[in-house]
Structure formats: structure tokens, C-alpha cells
Design a protein around this nucleic acid. Sequence first.
DNA 1: CAGATGACATTTATCAATTTCTGTCAGCCG
DNA 2: CGGCTGACAGAAATTGATAAATGTCATCTG
Lengths: 208, 208
Amino acid sequence: MSPEPLTAERILEATEEVLRRHGPGKATVVDVARALGVSHGSVYRHFGTKAALREAVTKRWLDRTADELRHIAGRREQSADGVLRAWLAALFAAKRQKAGGDPELFATYEVLLDGSSGVVAAHLADLVGQLTVIVEAGVARGEFTAVPGGAAATAEALFHATSRFHDPAHAPEWSRPGIGDAFEATVELLVRGLTATAGREPGRSRGH
Amino acid sequence: MSPEPLTAERILEATEEVLRRHGPGKATVVDVARALGVSHGSVYRHFGTKAALREAVTKRWLDRTADELRHIAGRREQSADGVLRAWLAALFAAKRQKAGGDPELFATYEVLLDGSSGVVAAHLADLVGQLTVIVEAGVARGEFTAVPGGAAATAEALFHATSRFHDPAHAPEWSRPGIGDAFEATVELLVRGLTATAGREPGRSRGH
DNA sequence: CAGATGACATTTATCAATTTCTGTCAGCCG
DNA sequence: CGGCTGACAGAAATTGATAAATGTCATCTG
């Protein structure tokens, strides 16, 4: 009655399916076990806790996006400006697609996200790391000027400055009409800031 | 037994006090009435609904910050760069102070905020309006270059790009050690983008 | 004996009964 | 007569008893 061996991978697939069917609130590990035709005790052999199972399935979901972006960040044949724009656009597009394509599943993962802070932190660190690579490449070419604090601080600033276009908390805005223009405007402003002439005095005039 | 006439203002003060005492979940309009020594029917004479009362008290709270900032936005004796930096720093400082000074009360208003979407929208529009004034002044002086879309679109981009430092959703991060540097880095990047040489080609190189 | 099972204790969710709160309004009071 | 009251109906929150889920582990099975 067990055609294939019970592997972590199969459990994760079944979990995704159960989550898609029942939603985050009503998906139990008994449901997952039933979908696989095994007892729930067997699931606990692979994932010691329900939270661990949810985190694993969340990680998988996040990694899919991160891997998609990684190869853009690695491009060297293009101007840093172009790579940065492409990467940010791809990030926005990926998130928008996930939110717009299957809203219920997206809502499910939104719930899962704030139960797996460690996984999310790692994901965000990964993305900021990719941005850091892009910024460093741009600085090396003399195209970009990093802010005081270096490429890592610059990447973090870029990431947070664009959070309206990738943070799930802002997902409701992504279907608004002017959002594409707002994205363009923000990216334009940030790219201008990065490509500002290096020799110029950064302007540290204090506020009051 | 009624020393002063029952005015909307007195009700709002009592409501703030009750909210501070009981928190948003357990603050009832009967509590507010009792604090004022009147029946709850009298409160309903001034605020037709509990939601209206909560919105009014929320508006008061938000307006305090907005008014503080308004006079900074109006400064003309200073460089636009300086005004912008001062305004953003004041916004961040005000929010940080509210969140750090009385965390429980801040949490209370956080709950209130997502029950009064209209009031919040108006508040955000007000702040973006102030930023627009600053950007317009900078453009008029030849200090700033707006992004395609004009001063309003630029102001909106600035506002969203700095949301990590004023959106209550990010309040937990405001007590982290490096947050001041992160703020400086972000503002630096944005100001550079605004003050970028007007003659330069904005760089519309497409991603892929 | 590696891997799965299902009975079990403990925690967490569900549901209906009961209480409390919101919002209205006819009447009271100064 | 303008402003306040308090009894009331319907809506929402609380409670406590019941059911279901999580996580453990001695036992079984191939």
C-alpha cells in the first residue's frame, strides 16, 4: 500500500496540497498523513514538530523566488544599472504574480510567514546578499557610489526603500492602477542616487 | 453633578484616558461615560457610533504629529536638502518617541489604526502633501530634479521609500542598534537621487 | 532492527449558553 | 425645549463543557 518510500520531499508536497485545499487554519498533520496513506506518527519521524513542517514548506516556497533572482544578480555582461533594474523588476513581478495568481494560497503563506521568523530572516538576508553583489559589481565598475557604510548598507537601504513592492504586507496595493508608475519612480530615484557623480560633496548639512 | 458642559473635546480626553487604562480591546463606551459621570446615551449624542469615537481620538493623535512637521515643511530660509533631511528626521524621531515612550499606548493606537482606514488615508495624504511642498520648493530653487511624474510622484516615492522608519508595522525594528545608520544611509541615497545633476540622461536602459 | 503504527496524555480549538456591550428612543428634568 | 437618562432590542464578547489536534512512545511488522 506504500508505492514509494516516505521521504521528506513527499511529505512537503502533500503538505502543500493540504494547505492549498484546507487553508492554514484547518490543515492538520493528520490530514497530511491521511493524504499520504500513513499514520501521523510517521510524519513526526521526519519533522519533529508541526512548526518545523510549516517552516520547511515555507522555506521551499521562498527559495523558489530567491533562486529565480539569483541568476539575474550574477549577470556580468550587463551594466550594473541594468542588472539592478532587472533584479528589482523581477522581484516585484514574482511577488505580484504570487499574490495575484492564487490569492488564497498567497494568504495561506502570509499566515505561515509570521510563524517562521527564522526562515523569513534567512530569506531576507539572502535577497539583501544578492543586492549586495549587484552593488559591489557596480562600484567595482565605477558605475555606482555606495553610501557611507559600504555596499552591504547600500543594499539594505535599497531593499527597504523598495519594500512597498515586495513586502507581503503591501500586497493589497499591488493591484492598484498607478502601481507600475510608482515602482518606476522609486527605482528611478534610487538608481539616480547610486549613479550620482562620485566626486560631489554628499551634502551632510544638518537639519536644524 | 456636572461641573462643566459635556463637550466633544472632554469626551475625547476621557476616551484617551480609558484607552490608556483598559487598552483597545476592553475600552467600552460605557467606561467612557462612567469616567465622565454621564450615561452612555449622552456620549452617543456627540459621536453617533463607537467607530466614530475611535476614529476621532485616532485623528487627534495623528494630527499632533502632522502639525509638528508642518512648520518644518514650510521653512524657506533653509536649503531644500536641509529641510527634507530635517523633516524626515523629525518624522522618524516623532514615531520612535511614540513607540518607545509608551509602548502599551502605542500598541493601542496600532489597533485603532487599522479600524479607521479613512482617517489614516487622510493622514498619509497630509504627510505626502507636506513632502510635495518640500520637493516643489527644491525644484523651484534648481536644487532638486523630480522623477518623471512630477513633484507629487516624487514625494510619494520618498514617503514609501522611507516607510521602514515611519510605518508602525516596522516599529519593532526602531529599537535595534544600527537603525540610526540605516536611516542615514537611506536618506543619503534618496537625497543624492534628488540632487542628481539635471542635465544627465536618466538611464532608461531596459532590464533584459 | 529500521521504520511504521496507533493508543495515550496534554494542549488547543470549537460550539452553544450566557453575559456584556452597542445603539435607539420615549420620556424626564431643569 | 434642549440636553440627558435609562430601559430595551439586537450584536458581540465571554465562558465553560466538549471535541479535536499535537506530540510521545511501547509495541508490532516485514
